[in-house]
Amino acid sequence: MRCLKHHLHEDEVYQADGHMHHVEEIPLTTIREFVANSLVHSNLSPKHFDYR
């Protein structure tokens, strides 16, 4: 996750009260969810792989 965070862009946005906060291009929670769903829903059975 540290590598992804390093390569994603981050904007600095000022709130109405004048405080600045950082907004990630893609939230890390979204990336974590994508990776978790990919692993959970992937077919890892031996029949699925082509060993040519």
Rank of each mutant, 00 (worst) to 15 (best):
37 N>V: 06
20 M>N: 11
43 N>S: 03
23 V>G: 01
37 N>L: 08
49 F>I: 06
49 F>P: 03
36 A>C: 14
39 L>A: 04
42 S>L: 07
33 E>M: 07
28 L>W: 07
25 E>N: 02
35 V>L: 05
33 E>C: 05
50 D>W: 07
22 H>S: 15
22 H>N: 14
30 T>F: 15
46 P>A: 04
27 P>I: 05
25 E>Q: 04
45 S>R: 02
4 L>P: 05
23 V>T: 01
48 H>G: 12
36 A>P: 07
13 V>D: 02
27 P>R: 03
26 I>L: 06
31 I>K: 00
46 P>N: 01
18 G>N: 00
26 I>H: 01
31 I>C: 02
10 E>S: 07
16 A>D: 08
24 E>N: 10
50 D>P: 04
32 R>M: 15
25 E>S: 03
12 E>T: 11
33 E>Q: 08
5 K>T: 10
49 F>Q: 04
18 G>W: 01
6 H>L: 12
2 R>Q: 13
39 L>E: 05
37 N>A: 09
7 H>E: 13
19 H>G: 11
26 I>G: 03
18 G>K: 02
45 S>N: 06
19 H>M: 14
25 E>C: 02
17 D>G: 00
19 H>C: 12
34 F>Q: 08
30 T>K: 14
44 L>P: 04
38 S>G: 11
29 T>F: 14
33 E>S: 05
29 T>P: 12
21 H>M: 10
41 H>D: 08
6 H>W: 12
41 H>A: 06
25 E>F: 04
16 A>K: 05
11 D>P: 06
15 Q>L: 14
26 I>K: 00
24 E>V: 10
25 E>W: 01
41 H>G: 08
1 M>S: 09
20 M>L: 15
19 H>I: 14
42 S>E: 07
4 L>Y: 07
38 S>H: 10
51 Y>G: 08
39 L>D: 03
45 S>C: 06
51 Y>S: 09
18 G>F: 00
29 T>A: 15
16 A>Y: 08
29 T>E: 15
37 N>S: 06
34 F>Y: 11
18 G>I: 03
35 V>A: 01
15 Q>C: 12
49 F>K: 03
3 C>W: 12
29 T>R: 14
14 Y>S: 10
37 N>D: 08
48 H>C: 14
42 S>N: 07
25 E>L: 00
48 H>P: 08
37 N>W: 04
39 L>S: 04
12 E>C: 11
34 F>M: 12
39 L>T: 03
10 E>Y: 07
35 V>G: 01
18 G>C: 00
31 I>R: 00
37 N>R: 05
47 K>A: 15
34 F>W: 11
9 H>T: 14
27 P>G: 06
47 K>W: 12
